[in-house]
Amino acid sequence: MAIRKLRQGEQDTLRDHLLRLGPEDRQMRFMGSASDSLIQSYCGRIDWLRTTILGYFTDADLRGVAELVQAGNRWPKAAELALTVERPFQNRGIGTTLLQKALVVARNRFTSTVYMTCLLENKKMQRIAHNCGASLVIHEGESEGTIWPPWPSYLSLVEEAATEGQALFRAAFEVPSSRTSIVLDKIV
């Protein structure tokens, strides 16, 4: 999997991913209907100092996202987490992997509590959260998962750095799959 952090200035990449979501997936992500203009406005308002976005890429296209947003200014830190994976890429473990990597990022930033809120009918999200150790509470048509990451360790810091290093390596040395098939056709 090609997973890396999005950088400030990549709002358009995130916007394009969110705009590719169908109405049902938009409703699950935003807990209500989300028009194209709402998504554009949302991406334009991201506070990159409080938000870490991990993206799953196929070639250059963003197909899945974990958004970790610091909540408030208290210590120890708390954060909210949201996941999206485009429909053709669901049920492949991408959401689980994004959540696991986002929890490492939260841990390395001394985040003591991560909250995940979803609609009651979003069983996929509830299952992913539960499988990653979330305590789930249901109230008023919503399910809220709470995860308490441990404090950072040398291994968690190395794990986050390795994810970024792997993404840089792929970007520098791998040929996208569409080009590979063209080259192979010319050789044969």
Results as ranks from 00 to 15, higher is better:
L49K: 09
R50V: 03
R50L: 06
R50W: 01
R50E: 07
T51N: 01
T52I: 05
F57I: 02
F57G: 03
T58M: 14
D59R: 01
D59H: 01
D59I: 01
D59A: 06
A60I: 05
L62I: 04
R63C: 15
R63D: 14
V65Y: 04
V65Q: 08
A66V: 08
L68V: 00
L68M: 00
L68H: 02
V69T: 04
Q70A: 06
Q70D: 04
Q70Y: 02
A71D: 09
A71E: 08
G72V: 06
N73H: 12
R74T: 13
R74C: 14
R74V: 15
A78G: 07
E80H: 11
E80Y: 10
E80S: 10
L81N: 09
L81T: 10
A82R: 07
V85T: 12
V85Y: 05
V85I: 13
E86T: 00
P88S: 03
P88M: 01
F89A: 14
F89W: 15
Q90N: 07
Q90E: 09
Q90H: 05
N91V: 13
N91D: 14
N91S: 15
N91F: 13
R92G: 11
R92H: 14
G93M: 04
I94D: 10
G95S: 00
T96A: 12
T97G: 02
L98N: 00
L99K: 06
Q100K: 04
Q100I: 01
A102K: 05
V104A: 07
V105F: 12
V105Q: 10
A106C: 02
A106H: 04
A106K: 01
R107H: 07
N108L: 05
R109S: 09
R109D: 09
T111W: 00
T111A: 02
T111Q: 01
T111I: 00
S112D: 15
S112H: 15
T113F: 04
V114H: 00
Y115D: 09
M116V: 10
M116R: 05
M116Y: 08
T117N: 08
T117H: 06
C118R: 00
C118L: 06
C118I: 01
C118E: 05
L119P: 00
L119S: 07
L119V: 08
L119G: 08
E121Y: 12
E121I: 13
N122V: 09
K123E: 14
K124A: 14
M125H: 10
M125S: 11
M125T: 10
Q126C: 15
R127Q: 13
R127G: 09
R127C: 08
R127Y: 07
R127K: 12
R127A: 13
I128G: 03
H130Q: 12
N131I: 02
N131E: 09
N131P: 03
C132E: 06
C132L: 02
G133T: 07
G133S: 10
G133C: 08
G133D: 09
A134Q: 05
L136D: 11
L136C: 09
V137A: 04
I138T: 15
I138N: 14
I138Q: 15
I138F: 13
H139R: 13
H139D: 14
E140Y: 12
G141E: 14
E142H: 12
E142M: 14
G145R: 02
T146S: 14
T146R: 15
